[in-house]
Design a binder for these strands. Structure first.
Length: 552
RNA sequence: CGCGGGGUAGAGCAGUUGGCAGCUCGCCAGGCCCAUAACCUGGAGGCCGUGGGUUCAAAUCCCACCCCCGCAACCA
């Protein structure tokens, strides 16, 4: 099998609140990558979902006068709806309350226990009687519980511990050698220096006091403490049953469920979906990097499973320079963005708000500016003017003439000059090279560069149109117009493919205006689709509604 | 010396194999009239945080210092 696979995950979101712009950012980014990989023909699996167990949810449910299951059902539905509204194309929405997840998690815990990675110990912490919860130092205000104003008491309880300490050296090595790639580089530095300088201690992985959770199979008084269980979603989301690595020897090195095993024996588990494991990219924000680069790989090592290839950490959004928080009242919900800018507008603004991997400052003013500049005045306007020109040309009884892209450069000089003194060699603007750079940047996850490439193509076409003045040629019945318009529309068609992972609906709207059927187009592979000549000269070009109305 | 990041045009940001400082918005002046009061061209506007060093050459590499932000583990 030559085809590649691509497995991407988002973290599962804790359902103690409705989705916000931060969750949406991670999810849209994952969606863009998943769509891109499907587009280039990779066998792709995109997993997202919700984390639904734990004391906080138990309490929040109680407060809302609901039983926990009802409570999480409602919130999980809100997440699913939000992703639906954002056109997220996940293959599976995993919930940690799913029957399969629970069963698998118990199997996995049992396995870890049997292998001696989990042992009985004690957890000591500061316990607030009012909250019936342990508090971390950070949660306390002046040494007191912010909710009850009382000082928490030191308490101990029996719990099970996971031998995290045993994995420190191996994890450090793996990260240093990029076998577990942590990107961007500054995040790798951070975690490497953390692992070098701080001894990892074993962590508690069960609670007696939390009822809303998954019971340990060998000790029903305990429930699994959240992190360990939550991480397993990346496996159970693929249909894993938790019986790791109890993979029967492959007879003759073959199995219908996964790629051939070496020597008939393999630690690879027969995951559903034909051997998707391990993840190629796991996206997350920086607050959960540390646990993902310690507990998570430790679990996989304990389970004897391959580690993810890459953890990619993106930044936080600041809203007008301030941290987004409920108390400041500056929380932006995905819904707010969609209402103002449309689904594709929202997706685009999230993805272009900041270089991928860095923190970014957002805000309504900035969103408005970017939306008008890039979408309304940029691609939206370009499509409108191109399609209108084509319609006018057809009305004058001229037709398009299929001619290769070199024609465009021959009349626009061999040196394309636009944007001040900035000049770009013709070679760089050739479709083949543009698409190559596009793909290179995508595989490096440089999404901001990918967006730049698209916008440069739009500028190029705008500049070209102004330079050749097709409207005059139409008036003068200049027969060269057929070639000019073909060049414009054909390049536009190819650009629309580049746009597709970010704004699928927009790409489809462009195709329709170009007389192409989205359903037919979607059958194509990217590399086939971007070949010059996809647009047939006789195609009926028809103007439709404005893609991105300006906002104020 | 806890760890990591940042300080570049009025605003927001790009910019490490060191090689004439760039983008978007805003501003000024032209052009165009196909298009969503849009598009194109040109212009003004920067001691690239400060002080040293390496180099023919530094925003970029090294050292010191100043200021800002995030993190400091069982916080889902």
């Amino acid at each position: 099998m030559k085809e590649k696979k691509f497995y991407i995950t988002t973290p599962i979101y804790y359902v103690n609140d409705i989705p916000h712009i931060g969750n949406a950012y991670t999810t849209v980014a994952a969606d863009v990558l998943a769509r891109y990989h499907r587009m280039i023909g990779d066998r792709t699996f995109f997993l997202t979902g919700t984390d639904e167990h734990g004391a906080k949810i138990e309490k929040a449910a109680e407060k809302a006068g609901k039983n926990p299951k009802e409570f999480v059902d409602e919130l999980a539905a809100k997440f699913e709806l939000a992703w639906d509204e954002l056109d997220i194309s996940h293959d599976k929405f995993i919930r940690t309350t799913d029957e399969n997840h629970i069963k698998a998690a118990r199997n996995a815990m049992q396995y870890l226990y049997d292998k001696g990675f989990i042992y009985k110990g004690e957890y000591e912490g500061l316990y607030c009687l009012g909250c019936e919860q342990y508090k971390t130092e950070k949660e306390l205000v002046g040494g007191k519980c912010p909710d009850h104003g009382t000082e928490p008491q030191k308490m101990k309880e029996e719990c099970y511990m996971f031998k995290l300490s045993a994995f420190q050296d191996r994890i450090l090595e793996l990260i240093k050698k990029d076998e577990l790639l942590v990107r961007p580089a500054e995040r790798k530095n951070e975690i490497v220096s953390f692992l070098k300088n701080n001894p990892l201690s074993d962590i508690s992985c069960s609670r007696k006091t939390v009822k809303w959770g998954i019971e340990l199979p060998w000790d029903k008084e305990h429930t699994v403490y959240v992190w360990l269980e939550a991480f397993l979603n990346y496996l159970t989301g693929l249909g894993w049953d938790g019986r790791s690595p109890l993979h029967p020897p492959c007879e003759g090195g073959q199995s219908p469920l996964h790629p051939p095993c070496e020597g008939g024996q393999s630690p690879l588990i027969p995951l559903a979906k034909g051997g998707m494991w391990p993840p190629d990219v796991q996206l997350m924000s920086k607050d959960i990097l540390r646990v993902h680069a310690t507990i998570w790989p430790a679990m996989l090592l304990a389970l004897n499973l391959p580690l993810p290839k890459q953890l990619f950490i993106h930044g936080f959004f600041l809203v007008d320079g301030k941290k987004m928080s409920k108390s400041l009242g500056n929380v932006i919900a995905p819904r707010d963005l969609i209402d103002k800018y449309g689904v594709d507008g929202a997706r685009y603004l999230l993805m272009s708000a900041t270089p991928f991997g860095h923190d970014g400052d957002v805000g309504w003013e900035k969103f408005d500016e970017k939306y008008n500049a890039d979408l309304a005045n940029g691609i939206g306007n370009l499509v409108a003017r191109s399609v209108t020109l084509a319609e006018k040309m057809f009305a004058k009884n001229s037709g398009m003439q299929n001619i290769d892209e070199n024609f465009q450069f021959s009349i626009f000089n061999f040196q394309i000059i636009f944007n001040n003194q900035f000049s770009i060699p013709t070679e760089d603007m050739k479709i083949k090279n543009v698409c190559q750079t596009y793909q290179d940047n995508f595989s490096l996850l440089k999404l901001e560069k990918v967006v730049d490439i698209i916008n440069l193509q739009i500028k190029f076409l705008d500049s070209f149109i102004t330079a050749v003045k097709p409207w005059e040629m139409i008036k003068n019945k200049d027969e060269e117009i057929g070639k000019i318009m073909y060049n414009i529309l054909e390049r536009l068609r190819i650009v629309s493919w580049m746009v597709w992972p970010f704004m699928p609906e927009t790409a489809e709207k462009i195709w329709r205006q170009l007389g192409l059927k989205p359903a037919e187009e979607m059958k194509k592979d990217f590399n086939e689709a971007i070949k010059w000549g996809g647009l047939k000269p006789g195609t009926k070009i028809q103007k439709a509604e404005v893609l991105f109305p300006r906002v104020n």
